[in-house]
Structures are given as structure tokens and as C-alpha cells.
Design a protein around this nucleic acid. Structure first.
Lengths: 253, 253
DNA sequence: ACAAAAGTGTTCCTCTTACACCCATGA
DNA sequence: TCATGGGTGTAAGAGGAACACTTTTGT
């Protein structure tokens, strides 16, 4: 038997699990995150508006991934979004005081602790999607413009950005941020936004054009007041065939 | 207000959170994982012995990380182990039937669902540590020798191995597996075990010796019946100074 | 002297970097 | 014709890959 069994204090009726979603979007120029507005009534009767990451408590019968899907779907109207798990935030004091009261009032229950699992995902922004989310009192905020968030959501967001950078170095997630057909300039803007650096465009194009899974579509931009750029697409099948699980000494740290 | 609020079914008294720990160890030759023996009495009265990943339900007041620390500390006797969060496994059906009964009997409670957060960590194996864990009915099993595990623990282990490989490409975690002073051969064996490949030893040594944070200690092996190898150590400070957050086009996928 | 593992150098080739100008389009 | 962003080539250097033999120690 486990010798530490006696230490475990079991009173599970006051603890809940929630999911929070960090939804990154890219509009061709800059990187944004989706924040939900929150109204909070102070004891004085004054109403404060601030922002939080979108999230929800989970149902008993619900997989956490389903809960996160539900949150995302409700806000941006898309099914089958590719969500990725991040950290769980489980400090017993992470939600307390006014913040805990807000949750209890909001859901009509009495909790003493909320543990939250964070998911994140990447979407392409267009004016239609932006309008859709704004009707739901959610805003796409540029990463540099994010101010104070509810709960420990600033901390969560910082962890998500870190995770995003890591992910970009492991997998071709960039294309989740872009429309199916994109220009190399959009792709470069995205890398520059994520890594926060400048990249030489000749070297960048050379690199991209050497990859067999970045394929010219034959179409070009229209009605732009400069030389129109070609559209490319990402060929997932070619990517899987070629580039899987290679080991190079260069990967050793 | 959240439009999906009505969907959430709130009965939190039958759901628990557990932690499971995937503890990888390296003995200089091969890669192992720590498994806990489990006794299970069948309705027939027969007693089955199988294996599971070490884990525990969590206390109300406990951070998940603390719970995982507790599990690890109890089994291997070391404090302040550097644990890393992995996925959460939250399928409502992941534990049911006999398996669920076993948990309820074991902890003396009545749960209908257990969600588990997985942590993993890396340790160096020596005969002292192996003896310590064996006294606690836990075994260091070679990865290739792992057979059927309790619950969904095979699935969890596979995910952990995948995570381990990814991590090796991102950070110098190798040194968490090795004693403070190690030979280049041990280091190479470790990379070969994790990636499951053969590496040319000349190229490997050249690469390692070019890294400023892999430093010869001046000492050598003793009492070996062949040419004694030099010991090296990993200089964490030098690593942090040099190698942080560089961007190269080669990282683009 | 032999077994066993440590340790060593060179060449080829690929990939990254640095760098500056012309091109196509709409206004 | 001009403003705007698209699109191009080359040379130098760094680093990875392939490859086989000598050295040191204990037995």
C-alpha cells in the first residue's frame, strides 16, 4: 500500500476544474489574443469592466478537451479547432476573495478552489471572424497592448506565449495562423511577430522555396497598388512524408 | 454572460483529481521507467499482481505539483525533484469497472470519475537508488520490457516518451539523467537510448567538445580494465549565458 | 599479448548569412 | 512618374556527415 495514503485529505465537494483558452490570432500583420470582457459589481454598486481569457467550469460528463472545444466554438463559431493542452494551474490560492465570489455568484454554486487547465490554439483572423467575436463581447487584443487581466490570467498568457515560441520551433504550426492560401510576406510577418525579430527577406524566401511542402498555387494578389504577390499553400501530406523525426547533431543542446 | 452556461452540469462531489508520475532513469546504458507493483483481488479470491505508474489522489489544500512531489519523494526519497507537467488525461471513461472499484476500495471513497494530471521527471540511477525503490515495491523497468499496465497507463507512458524526445531537442535535459561527473560515452549512450539510433562517436565528441558548457573535470575513471575515460561536467551558468533564445532559419519547419 | 573501450583528423558538402538593386502594379 | 511592396543572386563561412585506426589500461 502507499505509505503516504494517510496524508491525503479527501473532501472533493468544494473543488472544481475549469478550462481556460488562449486563442491566438494573426491578421497578416500582428499577433493578437482573444479576451472576453467581464462585468464585476463592486460592493459599492459600481460596475467594473475588465478582461479575462475565455473559459468555463466543466460538466461532470465532459472531457476537458470537449469543454475547451465548447468554449472556443461558442466564441468563434468554429468546430473541430485543433486545441493543444498546456499547463494546469493548481495553486490552491490562485482564485480567492472577490474573484472566487465572482465565480460562485456567476455559476450559482459554492466552491473553495478552482483548478484550471489551459488550452491554446491558433486561428487566422479576417474581418468576418473579428465581427463575430465582437458581437460576443470579446476582443482581439495585440499582444503588446494586453493590460491587467482577471485571476492569474496574465501569468497564464505569458506561459502561453512561451509555449507558442517553442512550438514554432518544433512543428509547422505557422500555417494554422494563415488562410489556406497565403503570401510569403504574410508568413514572414508571422515569424517576425512570434520571434520578435527582423528576418532578411531574401534568405527567408530562399529557405521557404527550398521546402517541398510550400507550394505555389499559381494565383496572385489582385487589386493591390504594387506588384502583386503570389499565393502559396502548405501541403501537409508532403510535409509528413519528408520531414518526420529526423535526428541531427545540430539539435543537441 | 456566457451563452453556454446552461450546458454545464455541476455535481462535483464524485470527481477527483489524481497525479501520475512518469519517472525516467538512466543507468549509463539503458533507459528505464519506475513502475509500482499493484495487488488486486479478483472476485474469485485470486490475487493478481500488475504494475502501474506511481500516483495519488490529491488533497484539497494541495497544489498538483506538491502532490506529484509527494509521490516522487515517497518512492525515491529525494526532495526538490524537477518535475515537468505533461498532459492531463480526462476522458470520463478512462477509469471504470474493476479499475474504478479498486480505487474506491483503496481510498475508501466513492468516485465516479478520476481525472489525472501527468508529471514526468528524469533521474540518474545508481545501485543505492535502485535498492531504495525496490524496498518500496517499485521496479526500474527497461522501456522495451514494459508490458501491460493498469488503467490507461500504457497510453500515458507512450505520450511521456514522446514528450521526452521532444524535450531533448529543446533543452539540455540530458544532464538530469547523469551524475554530476560523467563520461562522454555515458552521454552518447543516453542520446542513443532516447532517440533509438546509433551516433558516430567522433562526430559526437567533436560536437560536445565544441560546447563551452561541457567542461572536463580533470578526473578520470579508475579501476576499469581498459583505457580510463575522462569525466566532464555540465556548467549550467555557462549554458544560460551563451545559448539562450537564438533564432536560426534552420529552426523553421 | 590480448581484450576492451577511449580517443583522434580530414574531406566533402550542405546550409546559413550578409548584402543591394530591379520589377510590376495602381494611383 | 511615383509610391509601394514583390522579387531576385552570389560569395564566404560554419557546421554536419562519412569514414578507420591508434592508445591506454587491466588481465
Amino acid at each position: 500500500m502507499y505509505s503516504y495514503m494517510g496524508d491525503v485529505n479527501l473532501t472533493y465537494d468544494k473543488q472544481a476544474i475549469s478550462v481556460d483558452c488562449v486563442i491566438f490570432g494573426f491578421d497578416g500583420k500582428s499577433l493578437r489574443v482573444l479576451l472576453k470582457q467581464r462585468q464585476r459589481e463592486l460592493p459599492s454598486g459600481e460596475v467594473l469592466v475588465d478582461s479575462k481569457l475565455p473559459g468555463s467550469l466543466i460538466s461532470d460528463s465532459e472531457d476537458l478537451t470537449c469543454a475547451a472545444q465548447r468554449v472556443v466554438q461558442t466564441l468563434i463559431g468554429l468546430r473541430n479547432i485543433n486545441l493543444r493542452q498546456m499547463e494546469i494551474f493548481s495553486d490552491p490560492q490562485r482564485v480567492q476573495g472577490n474573484e472566487l465570489e465572482w465565480i460562485n455568484k456567476y455559476y450559482g454554486i459554492t466552491l473553495s478552489r478552482v483548478v484550471t487547465m489551459v488550452f491554446f490554439t491558433l486561428v487566422k483572423l479576417d474581418s468576418k471572424l473579428i465581427a463575430y467575436t465582437e458581437r460576443r463581447e470579446a476582443d482581439w487584443v495585440e499582444l503588446n497592448d494586453v493590460r491587467h487581466l482577471a485571476f492569474d490570467h496574465n501569468k497564464i498568457l505569458i506561459a502561453a506565449i512561451d509555449r507558442l515560441i517553442t512550438l514554432f520551433r518544433q512543428e509547422p504550426v505557422a500555417f494554422d495562423f494563415l488562410p489556406r492560401k497565403f503570401t510569403l510576406r504574410h508568413l514572414q510577418n508571422l515569424y517576425e511577430a512570434v520571434y520578435d525579430i527582423a528576418i532578411d527577406n531574401r534568405n527567408f524566401r530562399k529557405k521557404m522555396l527550398s521546402l517541398p511542402y510550400i507550394v505555389p498555387s499559381g494565383e496572385s494578389e489582385k487589386e493591390v497598388s504594387h506588384k502583386p504577390a503570389q499565393y502559396y499553400y502548405f501541403d501537409r501530406r508532403k510535409y509528413r512524408q519528408k520531414n518526420n523525426k529526423i535526428f541531427k547533431l545540430g539539435f543537441i543542446y
